[in-house]
């Protein structure tokens, strides 16, 4: 494993599989009565969140606590950041406090990468701008593998606001690495210009793609990132790109419906589809804790630096 988890684009296949296999063992812990492990006792994990996020922050916090790490939550609101402190000074402050890992969410793409150059500990990207959200992609892959038994050769369709979605980007790279075939479906205005260079197929017709999909991943329409009119009306978007019950019925019987959350019921996904047995939306949340435990263990569970490792008898 690398010392940091910044993106899935540079994650090796063997490392990605190691995360999934480790998460599998972590997931077994949620079945037992004592869920806590002593593994990261004495280690400090800082959640550094410059964007609101309840679900990801809570998931990382629970993962670190299950491994007995100390957790400090540092959010931009009401902190020194709102008083004008720079990212670098914040990083040096955390460094001085002895953070072994920094979990960073930032509205600017690349911020965790910069952070990784300033701190001694490991940096985990918890979402940066429209760049990547690697643990989300890893938990999606983990969820698919648990349900369908494999990733190799599966047809995965990602639907919606790809342009603003770091989840879509992380999934495209990871799924490619793990051997799945990805199709993006979105209005042309919500696809990035560079999509032609991505290892994906592109379609504008959801109905044509669904019958051949093993997995369909719905993305939230990110109103807060919409600075221009990307589609005429929400109703039209929902009619053309929303997953309603009639559309879901055209999926193969084994196919999964996924959503990274938070979902807007009635917009990109209909309520009865979100609550159907083929939906993995609640499982994804539970699996998120296991996958983040695996990432924290693999980044913090061993010796700090290879040269510091002693040979033990």
């Amino acid at each position: 494993m690398n010392r940091h988890l910044l993106s899935t684009a540079d994650l090796l296949r063997e490392d990605a599989l190691l995360v999934l296999d480790t998460a599998e063992q972590m997931a077994r812990l949620s079945d037992r009565s004592v869920k806590k492990l002593p593994t990261l006792r004495g280690r400090t994990v800082v959640n550094l969140f410059f964007e609101d996020s309840t679900r990801t922050r809570t998931s990382f916090e629970l993962a670190a606590k299950r491994l007995s790490a100390d957790v400090i939550n540092f959010s931009a609101k009401g902190s020194s950041v709102s008083k004008g402190e720079s990212l670098k000074d914040t990083a040096l402050t955390l460094e001085a406090m002895g953070a072994d890992a920094v979990v960073c969410r930032h509205p600017a793409s690349g911020a965790p990468q910069r952070l990784a150059g300033w701190v001694r500990g490991s940096v985990l990207n918890a979402g940066d701008g429209t760049h990547e959200h690697p643990t989300q992609a890893l938990l999606d892959a983990f969820t698919i593998r648990r349900r369908l038994g494999r990733l190799e050769g599966l047809a995965v369709t990602i639907v919606g606001d790809v342009l603003h979605s770091r989840v879509a980007r992380s999934n495209v790279w990871l799924l490619r690495t793990l051997g799945a075939k990805v199709t993006l479906v979105a209005p042309p205005t919500l696809l990035p210009n560079a999509v032609a260079d991505w290892p994906v197929d592109v379609s504008y017709n959801l109905d044509a793609v669904l019958p051949g999909s093993d997995v369909v991943m719905m993305l939230r329409v990110q109103r807060e990132r919409m600075s221009a009119a990307f589609f005429p009306t929400e109703r039209e978007y929902s009619r053309r790109y929303g997953l309603d019950a009639d559309r879901a019925a055209t999926l193969p019987p084994h196919a999964l419906v996924m959503h990274p959350g938070p979902m807007v019921r009635g917009m990109e996904i209909a309520s009865d589809v979100a609550d159907s047995p083929r939906s993995t939306i609640v499982e994804q949340v539970a699996n998120g804790v296991s996958v983040r435990m695996a990432c924290l263990y693999l980044l913090l569970g061993g010796a700090d630096e290879p040269e510091e490792r002693e040979v033990i008898r």
């Binding site: 296999d21 063992q25 077994r28 492990l37 693999l298 061993g302 010796a303």
Partner: peptide
């Protein structure tokens, strides 16, 4: 593995099945 006292002395160990 996750209960060992020597985890920090060498590279991270892969987990095995319980």
């Amino acid at each position: 593995t996750m209960y060992r006292d020597d985890l920090r002395l060498r590279a991270v160990r892969p987990l095995r099945v319980t």
